[in-house]
Computed example of a mutant assay.
Amino acid sequence: MTDTLTSLVLGRVADPARPLFTFYDEGTGERTELSAATLGNWAAKIANYLRDEVGVAPGDDVRVDLPEHWQSAAVLLGAWWAGARVLVGDYDGDARVVFTTAGRLDQHDADEIVVVPLDPFAMGSRDLPIGVDDFGESVRAHGDRYSPVGAGELALDEVPTSALARIESEVEAGQRVVSTRPWDTADTIAANLLAPLLVGASLVWVRGADDARVDAIAAMEKAGRVLRP
């Protein structure tokens, strides 16, 4: 298996049917749980879209301008699986494609822009400008199996050994882990999204909950660990 970050994450999964990533948003009431198989299928669709429709090759730049969400995790995993170098945070260079929200369209000028709805069912976005692709329409039609043709430079350059060492001291492979740690920059994506998945944890990520609610979610999810900022 080609050593993209996504291949490394999925390679740590012992049982593809068990939950790999669960997303809570207390502001909207959303709870979405994805098994490794389901999240892998979404990542494959995105990787196939990037390779077959956009023409992204290993090493090409893909810009991801999205807040934390299960669809954001799928986009990141799909881009890494395609071998792309993922760009997050402040970046002024040219990317082959940009994934963003409808509210951030004015901040981007790329040949290929995909609007991600960030809703529980990945439904389509309405009234998009001409030339802007809808995530649901663009990605859903592609296959949910993917065979990497090569890996470019590892996204985010690398996952720092310090991030992996910290997570390995906090969680165990196969453990259900509730986290409120942000992952909206290169460093925090590496430390708080990738590192737990790379050590084989099942990650439950929660937005907008106070400490009491986080503890209640941890009890409901039978989590063995809670990670706070």
Results as ranks from 00 to 15, higher is better:
89 G>Y: 00
28 T>A: 11
212 A>C: 07
128 L>F: 07
39 L>V: 03
48 N>A: 06
22 T>W: 04
155 A>K: 05
121 F>M: 15
188 T>N: 01
109 D>V: 10
173 A>L: 01
119 D>C: 08
11 G>I: 10
211 D>S: 13
55 G>D: 02
164 L>S: 06
28 T>W: 08
192 N>I: 04
157 D>K: 15
110 A>D: 09
5 L>A: 03
147 S>T: 15
76 L>V: 07
4 T>W: 04
145 R>Y: 12
111 D>A: 15
165 A>N: 14
103 G>L: 06
51 R>K: 15
46 I>W: 09
183 W>Q: 11
3 D>E: 15
44 A>H: 04
36 A>T: 01
194 L>W: 08
101 T>D: 00
126 R>M: 11
225 R>P: 06
102 A>Y: 08
142 H>C: 05
209 A>C: 10
216 A>Q: 14
185 T>D: 09
170 E>H: 07
184 D>A: 15
112 E>M: 09
158 E>V: 14
51 R>V: 15
220 M>A: 14
193 L>I: 02
19 P>Q: 05
211 D>R: 15
148 P>E: 04
50 L>D: 04
211 D>I: 10
161 T>S: 13
114 V>D: 02
55 G>N: 03
185 T>G: 07
138 S>N: 06
68 E>K: 11
170 E>D: 10
203 L>E: 06
63 R>N: 03
106 D>N: 14
100 T>R: 02
63 R>E: 09
205 W>S: 12
118 L>A: 01
23 F>G: 01
95 A>M: 00
62 V>K: 02
48 N>R: 11
88 V>H: 00
187 D>H: 13
64 V>T: 06
180 T>F: 12
43 A>M: 03
208 G>Q: 09
174 G>H: 02
228 R>W: 13
115 V>F: 10
77 L>G: 07
211 D>H: 14
112 E>L: 08
227 L>H: 11
40 G>W: 00
194 L>E: 03
112 E>C: 12
29 G>K: 01
80 W>M: 14
76 L>G: 06
190 A>Q: 10
128 L>V: 14
14 A>Q: 03
136 G>M: 13
53 E>V: 09
19 P>W: 05
101 T>P: 02
92 D>L: 08
84 A>H: 08
44 A>S: 14
10 L>P: 01
187 D>E: 14
93 G>F: 02
134 D>R: 03
92 D>K: 08
227 L>Q: 11
207 R>V: 13
184 D>N: 15
177 V>R: 02
27 G>E: 06
13 V>F: 00
132 V>C: 03
144 D>S: 08
219 A>E: 14
30 E>P: 07
40 G>F: 00
27 G>F: 04
211 D>A: 13
217 I>P: 01
207 R>P: 00
85 R>H: 13
208 G>V: 12
3 D>K: 13
167 I>P: 10
58 P>Y: 06
126 R>Y: 10
224 G>S: 09
93 G>T: 05
75 V>W: 04
207 R>M: 06
35 S>D: 00
14 A>N: 04
152 G>V: 12
141 A>V: 13
189 I>K: 03
